[in-house]
Design a protein around this nucleic acid. Structure first.
Lengths: 359, 359
DNA sequence: TTGTATGCGTTATCAC
DNA sequence: GTGATAACGCATACAA
């Protein structure tokens, strides 16, 4: 690799303006005293030479890099993109740069990134850890997660790391959603979700809890797994769920990147929403909006904002440990994709003749 | 701000293993000769102390940072996200970190970012410049764009910067799209587009050229501007276009982030696609797929890949100047949102009785 | 086979 | 008011 040696240094500025680099430093750093005339000489030299201080050298000297990093599972995921956006906005305002790292939900890749970030001595890390519900951080890597670099976890909490965590109330969000469907008279509620993330687990637990509280049977086969990167797996999840379980009247979708394909699958089966099947999704996006899908939303923007703000708080604090858990409420946005079962009962009774049978 | 001074240095490793730091350096850098026994001592010290070399110091010494940056208008935009994703993938494979910068299509912000990146002495920059068709780079900032830091421009070409550029063939893509609509018999084709980006200009020019070639009148009022961050502006663009110009039979949408709202607007007016109005969009996303919208696609992933690959080529080359223009073809994905006008004519003739009138 | 010494570009203390 | 200089952590030429 070719090395570039063509950046102007403070020495060249000093030479050009006929003073020592100490004086140039005083002008740049705005400290000490400099004669007005000297100052002007230096400033004009800086401008003429296009001098921009070397941040690496500053970093070494000052022990601060003005860089934070954000590590997420995928930057194609809407939820993360919105979080990153919020983080970048605020970081920039504070004159920080943001390094993005994509773990692809792979722990090895995540560790590789953390090591690289650690070596850069960045000032802070925001991470949505790629840890599944059943994973643990290996001892040999613990120093990367539990370093003295200020760290904020988002979206997912990891074991007993003593770090600030910011995430949605997945359990209650799902509980509310299930409760809502139950209130419409649904008793057979299917679920489609991706793999074993902690967040998804919480959502499934919320669903189970609601069923239990309302004394509704839970069936393991009402839950179908799907891989959002594989459309076919999503389509066949819809197929399986609805053909094997004829009594299902509503589907809860626990991940936002599934809804598009699920709608396509439902359409393919010739079913109408909400007449034949009710649908409730997670997170809001162009599709849920356009199709008037009732959905549970997370405060992605707020998660991002809170993450940076808390990170800066930690960076600026003298304390070493900052345990803290912020749990954000989810919202149920009621639209037109869920139908009351009472209507259907009426219809069925009409159809069966029993409704007017009493006349 | 609290400074951290708790990172293990090469000196501590040396001390711990009872050798000089030069020897530690030899072990880490895998150069020179080290006795096997010494090597083991050092390695175990590194592991015990969790030593990770300071990349800042390495950067100063080696004059390379292993960081590249990507500067785009918005990281919420699908097109850019896909490009960033491709870049991040390849950069990581090459042990580079990626800094993302969001210019919000604001030149001042872009310059601020470039200055910051310049100060970090990063190894390369990929930028989608925030320059409108009529903008020029001020002389005082030219050094930021025309620095010796390897640079690749994407999506948009800027004046006469002697840099590698990678972008889609917007002109011909739009020409093809217009031609396709004309071939279906459309003569009154409306356009909805965002503001004055060079890319959009090219697309409009392609549209005009096609009309001209097929001897079809061009009307300025067939082009409506809309702001994708303002749903109302999009809705009223649809409204204006279709109520003021009753003869329009097809709409071309020149930016992908508009299509969702435009579909909503069309639906609101009670129009059916493609029976009442044909729609052709730009870029492919969840919505165009779900609604079977015919669209022009750009090779976003390829643009990202080519951008990094060319960037690395420049980084590894001895040459100083790398002018180059790679123009990627767009594809017309024919789906079901555009209807042949012949069908309609037939229908109209049936309706008017003239079709069977000759019998 | 290993150790010593120097420079990368800043910042800031100390001396004049 | 200004200049000389040390230190940050690493890589490596040179010495031993």
């Amino acid at each position: 690799m070719s090395k570039r040696e063509d950046f102007v240094t403070i020495n060249e500025v000093a030479e050009f303006s006929g003073v020592s680099k100490a004086t140039v430093g005083r002008v740049i750093g705005n400290y000490g005293v400099v004669a007005e005339k000297t100052k002007q000489k230096v400033l004009s030299a800086i401008e003429k030479l296009n001098y921009v201080p070397n941040a690496l050298a500053q970093g070494m000297r000052n022990k601060t890099t003005k860089i934070i990093a954000i590590v997420v599972g995928s930057i194609k995921n809407n939820f993360f993109t919105e979080i990153i956006y919020a983080i970048e906005q605020i970081a920039t305002k504070n004159h920080f740069n943001v390094i993005i790292c994509n773990s692809q939900e792979d722990i090895e890749k995540e560790i590789m990134h953390l090591k690289s970030l650690y070596s850069r001595r960045i000032d802070g890390i925001i991470i949505a850890p790629a840890y599944m519900a059943d994973n643990k951080i290996k001892n040999e890597n613990l120093y990367l997660y539990d370093s003295t670099i200020p760290t904020v976890l988002i979206d997912r909490k990891v074991g007993n790391l003593n770090k600030a965590v910011i995430h949605s109330d997945n359990f209650n969000g799902s509980y509310k959603a299930t409760e809502y469907l139950i209130s419409l008279g649904h008793k057979h509620i299917g679920v489609i979700a991706t793999r074993n993330f902690i967040t998804v687990n919480d959502r499934i637990n919320g669903y189970k809890k609601a069923l239990k509280n309302y004394k509704i049977n839970f069936y393991e086969h009402y839950i179908e797994a799907a891989d959002y990167e594989d459309d076919d797996s999503v389509l066949s999840a819809v197929d399986n769920l609805l053909t094997k379980n004829k009594s299902i009247t509503a589907i809860m979708v626990l991940n936002d990147n599934l809804i598009g394909t699920i709608l396509a699958g439902i359409k393919r089966m010739g079913l109408i929403i909400p007449d034949d099947i009710s649908v409730l999704s997670w997170d809001d996006n162009a599709i849920t909006k356009l199709f008037d899908i009732t959905t549970i939303t997370q405060q992605a923007n707020e998660i991002g904002e809170l993450a940076v703000k808390n990170l800066f708080e930690i960076i600026n604090s003298e304390e070493k440990v900052h345990p803290k858990e912020i749990i954000l409420e989810t919202n149920l946005i009621e639209r037109k994709s869920c139908r009351s079962q009472d209507d259907i009962k009426v219809l069925q009774e009409v159809y069966n003749g029993s409704y007017y049978g009493n006349e």
